[in-house]
Nucleic acid binder design. Structure first.
Length: 802
DNA sequence: TGACACTGCTTACCT
DNA sequence: ACAGGTAAGCAGTGTCAT
């Protein structure tokens, strides 16, 4: 029989000494299937002078070499003769590799650490979630879905699955404020999918909500959960932090209640792996923990600095969680009755938000699946470095390159000491400026790697005398001009491919294309960092050093040229140049940038970023010199871009940020220094009189480690200690909120938690001296306004000034 | 003993 | 577990004059 299907999940099993790949997915007519392939063999590569016969005879326990093939592959971009050693079962690869690496004549072994299922997808060029053609026979097997034994299997087209998705969320009984799965039961379990809402709970109350379903115990609820999943037949189960919380909790409670959760398509149960960083997987269904994707990949493009479901849903969906007192759910539960209902509604809303977030971010996730070629479960849990690494691994096949091995522990430690000189930052002169034009190099680091052929295998070749050379602290480097680099060529493709899609996107908006453009940008921008990342397979310190050195070269070139041309250069950071037009016109600026571009190699390009009628640079706190990475620009639509100022830092109080923002607005937009002064003075008076509400004086700071890990007790650590006293768990990643109150001693001695503080308690003087004034002082310096004019509120002082 | 300068640790930003 | 460059607060320490 022939069939087309979209693979969702992949595993393998060993039967009769032979590995069988199992691809779970959905056919084009909507049925779930499992496609079996027993034709794929595990292998690795050996480099050295050793006889094939000797290699063929290697065996240990049930593992043995099946056969050996001679082949030619590029090792770090140079062709070499290698042996491909084929092994009977996947687990034999690391075992037999250990034996072979010690044999005389063997120089190195490669590709022994690529997971069998991933190897299968890459070698067979099968892309998960993408239409795949199978010829095969239906066979009987212990499986919830039809099993097809494949004779042939290959990618059919780029068509993508429309997955069935269900979102999961649980609420637990929690009287002691600790999330203890051994002690406290799950009391509400919700699911939300396409035309599907269900909340299961085990205490009855009167309700007209049709989606609420009552069972008689926690055990029955868990059982019902498994049934509902089986009935709904999802391709994807999604949740918010379900790797770390919901699934481990469900599994623990199932164990305690002796419930068999055979939700896997092969009747297996939910598998929880890892202790500190848990991962929950279900055979045949892709578990997406959308929180992980958000925090690792999406986070830096979001405005919010909190990644709670509420904050993220608010920004991405414009929707929020239901407002209930979740801390007292246990109390309501104990009392029973109708009050439980609001928590069921709350639970379903969480499921819905998670579902909607997943729908929204799915195009982005799928794009990475398509680019990298691994299952969505894997891609969901990857970070920038792994994206780059797996993309390189996939591309290695096309280039016939050997996949380099991961560094050993010692090598990784040594690499950690390597430091690369980074970007150049131009010191601005503090001041309020007019008519500013900003230029920047488009994708500076990727375009340098592409245009200067920067690649690990081409460093300081013996053959090229004419290659452009760059001087660095580490020495002089050049890259072979006679061949295209593996690394540089891949980036080059990425950049041109992205530019092409971006052009298409301009013609017609399309969320899939937008996601593709975004994914390619994320990937290209991660390449440079990867080069200097200690655990990387293609680590290349010379490449990284050269990339930044060339970047400094080209930014200086732009700065010098702009000055020569008569522009007043105000600032520059890494890839940008800020110039003041002065008597020159916008056209002069555009002409100049054109001239620069005529001189740039390859894909490099300096772009016009924007025109700003006004901009402000300030001095540093410590000296009179200009502060880098701190400025504000007013654009022609009166919008202000603020960089680096306290107003955009999360560990400053709202009142301090608001005041600074308003001062910047009054200064840049309205050019009204008097109003700015007045505004600050009024706020200071309000703080002195404790008129500013407590929530505006709360300071929020993230803990980077547990309380014990700190050598000095700073205010946020003092606050964390108070939280622990309250019975709250705090650790790295916890955001602590605190208020500085009146009293004696160090600031940390005056720290209290927001709920402990009444309106009159906070220390207005602290907020004036340590929050408001530091934020505006350097701005007023630029306007020649002395700080006394802000703090002393006598009218005479103001009059005196004029 | 107190004012002050300086350092180290820490957080959070910019590109 | 992508990179380096930068500002700034607070606690702690050292210095100096008293």
């Amino acid at each position: 029989m022939n069939l087309s299907f979209y693979p969702v999940d992949i595993t393998y099993e060993v039967k009769d000494g032979k590995p069988i790949i199992k691809l779970f997915g959905r056919t084009t007519d909507g049925k779930q299937v499992c496609v079996l392939d027993d034709s794929f063999e595990p292998y690795f590569y050996v480099q050295g002078t050793v006889s094939e016969k000797k290699l063929e005879s290697v065996q240990k326990d049930e593992f043995k070499v099946v056969r050996v093939e001679k082949c030619k592959k590029n090792v770090n971009e140079k062709e070499e003769d290698l042996f491909k050693v084929i092994v009977n079962i996947p687990k034999g690869v690391p075992v037999l590799k250990e034996i072979i690496v010690d044999m005389t004549g063997v120089k190195k072994v490669y590709e022994y650490d690529i997971l069998f299922t991933r190897r299968y997808l890459l070698d067979k060029k099968i892309v998960p979630l993408t239409k795949t053609k199978v010829v095969g026979e239906k066979i009987a097997a212990n499986c919830k879905v039809d099993c097809i034994k494949a004779k042939s299997i290959k990618k059919e087209s780029d068509e993508i699955i429309e997955p069935r998705i269900v979102a999961l969320d649980i609420e637990t009984y929690n009287p002691d404020n600790s999330l203890n799965a051994k002690k406290n039961p799950i009391i509400i379990l919700g699911l939300y999918g396409d035309n599907f809402s269900r909340v299961v709970t085990w205490k009855k109350f009167k309700t007209s909500n049709k989606y609420i379903e009552f069972v008689s115990s926690e055990a029955d609820m868990l059982q019902r959960f498994a049934e509902l999943i089986t009935e709904y037949q999802p391709d994807i189960i999604t949740g918010y932090f379900t790797d770390g919380f919901d699934f481990p909790y469900i599994v623990e409670r199932a164990k305690i209640n002796k419930v068999e959760l055979d939700v896997g398509l092969d009747y297996s149960t939910i598998d929880i792996r890892g202790r500190t960083r848990k991962e929950a997987s279900i055979t045949g269904i892709a578990h997406v923990d959308i929180f992980k994707f958000i925090i690792r990949v999406i986070a830096r493009s979001l405005k919010t600095d909190q990644y709670s479901l509420n904050a993220v849903a608010n920004e991405l969906l414009g929707a929020t969680k239901h407002d209930v007192d979740i801390e007292h759910l246990f109390d309501v539960w104990d009392k029973g009755g109708k009050n439980i209902e609001q928590y069921c509604e709350y639970n379903l809303q969480d499921c819905k938000l998670t579902y909607d977030l997943t729908i929204k971010l799915l195009p982005n996730l799928i794009e990475f699946v398509r680019i990298i070629g691994l299952p969505i479960f894997d891609v969901n849990r990857m970070s920038f470095s792994t994206f780059v690494e797996w993309y390189l691994i996939k591309k290695a096949q096309e280039f016939n390159e050997i996949i380099l091995s991961k560094p050993g522990h010692n090598e990784e430690r040594e690499r950690m000491h390597d430091r690369i000189q980074g970007a150049f930052v131009y010191e601005p002169k503090p001041g309020l400026y007019e008519k500013i034009v900003v230029f920047d190099y488009r994708s500076l680091y990727p375009s340098i790697i592409a245009s200067l052929n920067i690649s690990k295998g081409l460093v300081n070749c013996k053959c090229c005398k004419k290659a452009s050379r760059i001087n660095t602290d580490r020495g002089e480097f050049w890259f072979c001009t006679k061949q295209k680099g593996f690394f540089s060529e891949i980036i080059s493709e990425l950049i041109t491919h992205r530019a092409k899609i971006k052009k298409e996107l301009k013609q017609k908006q399309n969320p899939l294309l937008a996601a593709q453009v975004e994914a390619l940008k994320v990937l290209a921008n991660s390449f440079y960092g990867y080069l200097g990342f200690a655990p990387a397979r293609w680590y290349c310190i010379e490449c990284a050093e050269s990339t930044t050195a060339w970047a400094r070269h080209y930014i200086h070139k732009a700065i010098d040229s702009a000055k020569k041309e008569g522009f007043d250069v105000l600032y520059s950071d890494t890839d940008s140049v800020f110039v003041q037009l002065g008597k020159k016109s916008k056209k002069d600026a555009l002409d100049w940038v054109k001239k620069i571009n005529d001189d740039l190699p390859g894909l490099m390009e300096l772009e016009f970023e924007g025109f700003y009628p006004a901009g402000l640079f300030v001095a540093t706190k410590a000296s009179e010199s200009g502060a880098k990475k701190k400025y504000a620009l007013l654009d022609e639509k009166k919008h202000i871009t603020i960089k680096g100022f306290e107003a955009v830092r999360r560990n400053w109080s709202i009142i301090a940020k608001e005041v600074q923002q308003e001062v910047l607005r009054l200064v840049l937009n309205e050019k009204n220094t008097e109003n700015a002064k007045k505004f600050v003075r009024e706020t200071i008076e309000d703080l002195r009189a404790n008129k500013i509400p407590v929530e505006k004086v709360v300071i929020r700071t993230e803990l980077s480690k547990t309380v014990e890990g700190y050598s000095t007790v700073s205010p946020h650590v003092a606050a964390a200690k108070r939280m622990e006293k309250d019975g709250k768990k705090v650790s790295g990643g916890t955001i602590v909120s605190y208020v500085v109150t009146k009293g004696k001693g160090k600031i940390r001695d005056k720290v209290k938690l927001p709920h402990e503080v009444k309106q009159k308690d906070y220390d207005g003087e602290y907020y004036i001296d340590h929050q408001i004034l530091p934020g505006v002082e350097r701005i007023f310096d630029v306007l020649d306004v002395h700080i006394d004019e802000l703090t002393k509120n006598t009218k005479q002082k103001t009059l005196e000034h004029f």
